[in-house]
Each structure stands twice: as structure tokens, then as C-alpha cells.
Design a protein around this nucleic acid. Structure first.
Lengths: 224, 224
DNA sequence: GTCTATATTTGGATAGAC
DNA sequence: GTCTATCCAAATATAGAC
């Protein structure tokens, strides 16, 4: 009592699982079909190509994940709480292998348009979620004057992906990187405890340096 | 007038080039052999397996790269200068496709021990280079009291990899992430302009938050 | 919708001539 | 050391029976 039109669902789940446990390069039609307990030919019948199946699998997974934590994020009221919730979410998503899958898709997406689209969608959903919290919670605070929510949200996404890859290759080094994020966050939270004169001094100094840094960045716009 | 024992060298360069331009999944023995202008069988004769060739190619490239910028890093005397040199190096290495190759290898290294070893070596060399500058230049300053050089160096490496992947999938988003790094650096540099009382207050506050953040981190040690 | 069978291509790897 | 020829495994994708 199983095989109806949820064969597609089983294929999506199996595809996600194979990418998660064995990596993108091992996610062949045969491997996924076997994992799903159905014939590999059904992948092409239902999804067209293997990568389109993987895209569907990723989309489904990321949409569920973001929804899963949406309430938790909505209850955040400070930068410190955002740190706390964000780290809990990241930790849980890491354990579930979801970050690993995203990293695999992003690497594959560098040279495959379908995987690129899937990656952009996944990263975009997480970034939007984080950004909305930043806008609501951090923007009105002193630290918010020094940061741009879109910038920071993208940086957080990129950082998590980078740390995930580092982790799979050199776990100790990834732990170091993670510890560093804590410190920077602590610094930001500390800024929120500053008085008005101090804030003004910070803002001026940061602005001076910010424009200079921006000038250095410009040589590499998003050429693609 | 060419083919002597530098066939190995041509294979290494070709392997690097194929990974750079077409990605790891397209780096087959045949593709690399063709790019090198030699027969694919020579890959197995000289290097054993394709991945071992790719490892040799990566090792050679990263060693040359680090040496290439070593003098520039050695002349850095401040955090602001480190930002400047670091961004110039990153920009140049990105244009040369070296960051892209590292990202490909790290993704592949998640499930392949040879590629994992190559990735660890590459990331390790860059991290060590950055760390040595941090130790020399930043550690004695007020910002240095808030940061750990090993932590920050790993975070920088991870961040660059993450941004690279993000760039290939959503260029605009990657630009946002990069801008954010500038701002954080500006903030750190600003801290270096603080007077002694201010520094002390910062240090105490950061330490308080740091230990709390560390407690949150601990649940995910470098399991592998 | 699902399966079996198969056409076709591509990839890793080796044997053996030169 | 290098090449040709080749074996074998695995991959995508399709045709056609059920």
C-alpha cells in the first residue's frame, strides 16, 4: 500500500538523501532510483533530468526548513537572541545535512544552470528570512546604523556555506572559524550598550572607513 | 621541441585549467589529456588516478600563489593595510580562477579523501599566511585583544570560499556579502582608535558575551 | 504510471607496441 | 615515456511492453 502519485515524493526524498550522504557526484539516476525503491526510468518520466529532480528535491526541502523555523525567528527581539536562534537553527540544519546539500548544489551550480537556479532559490529563502529579522530587530539599534541588513544577511549565508565546506575538509579549522563569528557578534552586541556620544564617534569613524573600503571593492562588480 | 619530463607539468596545468573553467565534474582523464595535448593514459602512468593529478595541480598552484603574495603580506603594518592587501590578493586570485578551483575541490573533498587532503592543504597555506600577519600586526593592538588570530584566519578563509560559491550562483548577493565584510573590518579598525577606558569597557563586555557564545557553540564540536 | 530492455556515450584504467 | 587499442563499468536517456 504505497505506490500512487507519491512516487514523485519518494524520488524527491531519495534524491535529497543521496546528495546528502554521498555527494552530488554520486547522485546518479540509478543511485537515486534504488534509494527510492523505484526504477530509474521514472526519474526521466517525472522530472525530465536528474538535475531537475535534484532541484525539486532541494526546493521542497528548503521551503519546509524555512517554514519550520519561521516562528522561532519571528519571536526574536534582539541581536543577542538572533545569535542564539540563528546558531540553534544552523546547528540543527547542519545535523540534518541540509547545509551540506546546499553546499553541494552551490558547487555544482557554478557550471550547471539548473543547479544554479536551485542554489539561488535555497540561499535566497534563507537570506530573506534572516534579513527580515535584521530589519525588524537590529536596524533600529545603534549597531543597525553601522550595518546593512541585505549585506549582512548575504554574508551570513555565505559564511555558513563556507564553514560547512571547511568542516568537511578540516573540522578543527571550521571550529576556529565558527568561534570567530561569535566574537564578532559579541562585539556588535557590545556596541548596542554604548552611550550616544560613543555611538556618534563610532558612526563617523566607520563611515570614513566604509567609503574607503567600498572604493576598494568596486573593481570586482558582479561580473558573471 | 617540448615533450620531455615536463609532460607532468603540462598535465598539472591542464588539470588545473579544466577544473577552473569547466568544474570538477567535467575534469575527466580524457578532457585533461586533450587539454594538455597528450594521451589520457599518461595521467594514470604519472599520477595514478585523476584525483591525484588534480591534487598535484592544486598543490603546485596554491604554493606558487602564496609565494607570489608573501612579500606583499610581509610589508603590512596595520589592520587597514591588511584589509587593503587582502582585498587586492583576493580580487586577483578570484580573477585567476584560483578561488573557484579551491571551492570545487572543497566540495568534492566532502566525499573524497584525496580531494579533501588537497583542499586542506590549500586552505591551510592561505590560513597560515593570514594568521601570521594577524599575529604580527593585529595581536598587539586593542582589536587584537578581542580576536584570536587562528579563529579569524579560518573565518576569513571560509568566508572567501562561501562568497565565491555565492558569486557563481547569485552575483548580486555575493556583492552584498562582500560589502558586509568591509563594514565589519571598518568597525574593528575603529576600535583601534579608542582610548584606554573605552577599550577596557569593550573588553569586559565582549568577554562576557564571548563566553556565552562559546557555550552555545560547544554542542557542535568537530565531529567528522 | 511503472517496469524491462536497450541504445548510446562517457569515464577509469590497463596491456602491449613502439 | 608515450601512444594505440581496448576492456569494463556506469551514466543518461528512450522505446515499448504491461
Amino acid at each position: 500500500m504505497a505506490s500512487t502519485a507519491d512516487t514523485k515524493e519518494r524520488l524527491r526524498l531519495a534524491a535529497f538523501d543521496v546528495v546528502r550522504t554521498k555527494g552530488l557526484s554520486a547522485a546518479s539516476a540509478r543511485a537515486i532510483g534504488t534509494a527510492a525503491g523505484v526504477n530509474q526510468a521514472l526519474i526521466f518520466y517525472h522530472f525530465g533530468t536528474v538535475n531537475e529532480l535534484i532541484e525539486a528535491a532541494s526546493n521542497e526541502a528548503v521551503e519546509r526548513s524555512v517554514a519550520r523555523y519561521a516562528e522561532g525567528f519571528s519571536q526574536v527581539t534582539s541581536l543577542a537572541e538572533l545569535l542564539e536562534v540563528g546558531m540553534r537553527v544552523h546547528d540543527e540544519e547542519r545535523r540534518r545535512g541540509h547545509v551540506a546539500v546546499m553546499a553541494q548544489l552551490m558547487a555544482g551550480g557554478q557550471h550547471d544552470p539548473v543547479l544554479a537556479r536551485a542554489s539561488k532559490h535555497a540561499v535566497g529563502l534563507w537570506t530573506a528570512q534572516v534579513r527580515s529579522v535584521l530589519d525588524r530587530v537590529v536596524a533600529p539599534t545603534p549597531a543597525g546604523e553601522l550595518l546593512d541588513s541585505a549585506d549582512l544577511a548575504s554574508a551570513i549565508s555565505a559564511g555558513f556555506i563556507g564553514i560547512e565546506l571547511l568542516h568537511g575538509v578540516d573540522g578543527a579549522s571550521a571550529d576556529h572559524a565558527f568561534a570567530s563569528l561569535d566574537r564578532l557578534n559579541a562585539l556588535l552586541t557590545t556596541v548596542n550598550g554604548f552611550g550616544p556620544t560613543l555611538r556618534a564617534a563610532l558612526r563617523v569613524a566607520a563611515r570614513r572607513l566604509g567609503t574607503r573600503a567600498a572604493r576598494l571593492t568596486r573593481p570586482t562588480p558582479s561580473r558573471k
